[in-house]
Design a protein around this nucleic acid. Structure first.
Lengths: 230, 230
DNA sequence: ATAAAACGGTAACCATAGTTACCAAAAACG
DNA sequence: CGTTTTTGGTAACTATGGTTACCGTTTTAT
């Protein structure tokens, strides 16, 4: 029944250490629902009760947060094998503050939260493993938010950009790389406006600290960048 | 051996649903360490490996984050029965980005993370309950960080203050209340400077929207405040 | 009780980034 | 292909909030 997705699911952190056979059993026991969405369709709107734990099977979803002023702040982008809703799935009486939207046409599997925690007879060992995995996943998620807080707490735009570029440098191990976000998205992520971002990046180029064209960026003066990130 | 602390510990969310007798057993099995700290003493410095899960037995600790520029951003204040380190306790090879400092003289219990997850024979039922509690706790923590992100994402100082005041109003159910943070701390929390905070609060008073003297605040125009928080 | 330290308000000046609007380049679509 | 849509750079003007410094008040320590 779920054979089609076993391969993707085995890459999901929730099923870490569970082999295909056991995974089949677990799925059969969890009775997950699978839905498909078109690009830009809502998967979950803010305030709506999430149908449990979500796992992206194909395509991509954007997890974002809309504040009262209507500005959308991107939290993460999830692709195949990645999860969302892990923050609220185990908390009763908490409506999710996040919104989930299909960034591309996608298929999503929903796991009922209650079944994830309670062991059943046929595959209790796997269930226990799942719980341990879940604990790590949620901890990890908290840490991601923690880093998000770090970004938002940076006061100057220049320092935000510098920090972001240094992180890309560290990630790719290269001084030339492609930006993983478009200008608009980066501006959202750093919580500034796009023209301000463009202006500041222009200045960094003028000063010979970086060079860029569209999404490709080259760091020319790593030390200056480090100083400015503080 | 841990009798002295049973009462406090039973208020800790980690031991929710575990009665005193079982708690004694669990503690005996977990073999926690108890340390005392003086006011302003470091409990855990940034980057240091946390000794596991921390539970405040008496006094208060401040969990904060120091960014590269040296600005301290308060994450939470934990009192008796409250925990810290729950974010990193279950993640190997992750150094904690947070710092923990004694806000007042305090006593702290540390639980080895590994023992929390793995069942032992004598009190397996209680251990299982602990794991479920832990899952809820970490989820809750993630949600708190999520709210923190919401605050930081607010762009104008006026809206930040309005949001904060509205939250106090909601919390106390009263239009007159005591601020739980000093000006410096509030400025830290909202990620702005103290003079700017004072200036803006002064303006709000001038406009007849609020009234305040030191830490006591009275909301005079709730609707305006709501509009400004957006 | 008194000195010292911490806290909080204020004001002038300045730097940073938001706003708006316009245009060019690139990508998507038929 | 050519057209439409999306994306991104730029510039003038404005608003917001940071900086610094000073001073009175409140709290803490001795």
């Amino acid at each position: 029944m779920y054979q089609k997705w076993i391969k993707v699911l085995s890459t999901c952190a929730l099923f870490n250490g569970i082999n295909s056979d056991n995974l089949q059993g677990v799925l059969h026991c969890l009775k997950p629902k699978v839905n498909s969405y078109e690009k830009n369709e809502w998967v979950t709107a803010a305030g709506e009760k999430i149908a449990g734990l979500g796992i992206v099977l194909s395509g991509e979803v954007v997890v974002a947060q809309e504040n009262a002023a209507g500005n959308r702040v991107i939290i993460t982008v999830d692709g195949p094998g990645e999860m969302f809703g892990e923050m609220t799935a185990f908390l009763e009486s908490v409506e999710s503050p996040a919104t989930v939207m299909a960034r591309a046409a996608c298929t999503v599997m929903f796991l009922p939260a209650g079944k994830v925690v309670s062991c059943c007879e046929n595959s209790c060992a796997s269930h226990k493993l799942m719980i341990t995995n879940m604990l790590k996943i949620v901890s990890e998620k908290a840490l991601v938010l923690h880093r998000k807080v770090e970004y938002l707490a940076i006061k100057s735009l220049r320092a935000k950009i510098s920090t972001f570029l240094l992180e890309q440098h560290k990630r790719t191990g290269n001084t030339t790389f492609m930006m993983p976000l478009k200008r608009n998205e980066l501006a959202d992520f750093l919580n500034v406006t796009r023209p301000s971002l463009s202006r500041e990046m222009g200045k960094l180029m003028e000063e010979g600290i970086i060079e860029f064209h569209m999404s490709s960026v080259k760091i020319k003066d790593l030390d200056s960048l480090r100083t400015m990130a503080e």
